[in-house]
Design a protein around this nucleic acid. Structure first.
Length: 285
DNA sequence: TATATCTCCTGCGGGC
DNA sequence: TGCCCGCAGGAGATAT
C-alpha cells in the first residue's frame, strides 16, 4: 500500500522515464479514476495532450507533474492500490489499467488501480508559504522528509489536540506521508501507544515520535518501499522489500523485537493497529 | 470549531 | 464447488 516512501519511489521513476516527454494522447478507461477532475475525462485527455512534462514532484502521498504550460499540474494520488507503470505501447494491457497516456518516446504511462481509491486530476498551481503547490494539495502539511519540515511547529500543533496520537499522525494536514503501516512502526519505535492523547504527551516524546517517523520512512525509501502483495509496484513494475524490516505492522502474536512480549492487534479507526503491550502501554483510563 | 464516523471499491481468504 | 461475509485502508464528506 503506497505511503510516502512508495510514492517517492514512483516520483523518481517518473523523473527518469517521463520528464521531458510529450504527451501524445490520453485515454480514460474508467471514469472513477478521474472523478476528482470535475470537467471529466474527456477534458483531462484534451488538456493533457501536447504538453511536455517538466517535473515530477511530491508532498506526502500526493504526486504531481508540471508541464511546459505554466500553472498547470496533473495531480496523482495512488490511493490504496494505484500504480504508475511506463510500458511499451504495445505491451498487453493490465487488468485494471484505467488511464493511458501515450508518450513521444513510444512508451505509455499507465495508471493501474485495482480498488480505484486513487486517481488523476488537473489543477492550477497556487503559492503556499513560498512553495508552488497544486490547489488540491495546498492544505497538506509538509512531510518528515521535506527539507523545510518544521518539527517544532508540528509538535506545537499536536499538543493543542485532544485526540489520539495515531489519529493525528494519519491526519495529512498536520504531518503528511504517514499511513497506517508507518504510523504503527513510528509508534513502536517511540514506545508510544497510538491511543495516547496528543496533548498529554511531552514535547520530547512528540519530537522523538516525529524523528522515528522520518527515520522509518527514510529506511523504507532506501529499500525501495514496502510491499505485501502485487498491489504495490514502482514505475517499472518492481516491488519493494521493506516489509522484511517491519517491527510492528502485521506481527500479531509474534514476539516484540525489543522485549519479546507477544505483539497485539487492535481495532482503531476501522483499521488494524499493531503494538507491543509492554513497550507501548495503553493510556490509563 | 473540533473531533469522530461513514463512504467509496475490489480481490482475497475463511467459513459453511 | 460455490456462495457469503469480513477485511484491507486514504481521504473527503458528513455527523456529532
Amino acid at each position: 500500500m503506497p505511503e510516502l516512501p512508495e510514492v517517492e519511489v514512483v516520483r523518481r521513476g517518473l523523473t527518469e522515464h517521463v520528464v521531458g516527454r510529450v504527451v501524445r494522447a490520453v485515454t480514460v478507461k474508467h471514469p472513477r479514476s478521474v472523478r476528482r477532475h470535475e470537467p471529466g475525462g474527456a477534458d483531462l485527455a484534451a488538456r493533457l495532450t501536447g504538453l511536455r512534462v517538466e517535473s515530477a514532484q511530491r508532498r506526502g502521498k500526493f504526486l504531481w507533474l508540471t508541464f511546459d504550460e505554466p500553472d498547470t499540474s496533473l495531480v496523482v494520488h495512488l490511493g490504496m492500490s494505484g500504480q504508475m507503470l511506463v510500458q511499451p505501447a504495445d505491451a498487453p494491457l493490465e487488468k485494471h489499467a484505467h488511464i493511458l497516456a501515450a508518450l513521444d518516446s513510444g512508451q505509455e504511462l499507465r495508471f493501474i488501480d485495482q480498488r480505484t481509491f486513487g486517481g488523476w486530476q488537473l489543477a492550477d498551481l497556487v503559492e503556499v508559504e513560498g512553495t508552488l503547490l497544486p490547489e488540491p494539495v495546498a492544505h497538506i502539511g509538509r512531510d518528515p522528509l521535506d527539507p523545510l519540515f518544521d518539527a517544532d511547529r508540528v509538535v506545537k500543533a499536536l499538543r493543542a489536540k485532544q485526540s489520539e496520537i495515531k489519529r493525528l499522525l494519519l491526519d495529512q494536514t498536520i504531518v503528511s506521508g504517514v499511513g497506517n503501516i508507518y504510523a504503527d512502526e513510528a509508534l513502536w519505535r517511540a514506545g508510544i501507544h497510538g491511543e495516547r492523547v496528543a496533548a498529554k504527551l511531552t514535547r520530547p516524546a512528540l519530537h522523538g515520535l516525529l524523528t522515528e517517523a522520518g527515520t522509518v520512512m527514510s529506511e523504507a525509501l532506501q529499500a525501495g518501499g514496502t510491499s505485501f502483495d502485487a498491489l504495490y509496484v514502482n514505475v517499472n513494475g518492481q516491488s519493494g522489500y521493506f516489509e522484511r524490516s517491519l517491527n510492528a505492522y502485521g506481527r500479531e502474536h509474534e514476539p516484540c523485537r525489543r522485549c519479546g512480549a507477544p505483539m497485539v492487534r487492535e481495532k482503531f479507526m476501522n483499521r488494524s493497529s499493531f503494538s507491543c503491550p509492554r513497550c507501548q502501554p495503553r493510556p490509563r483510563t
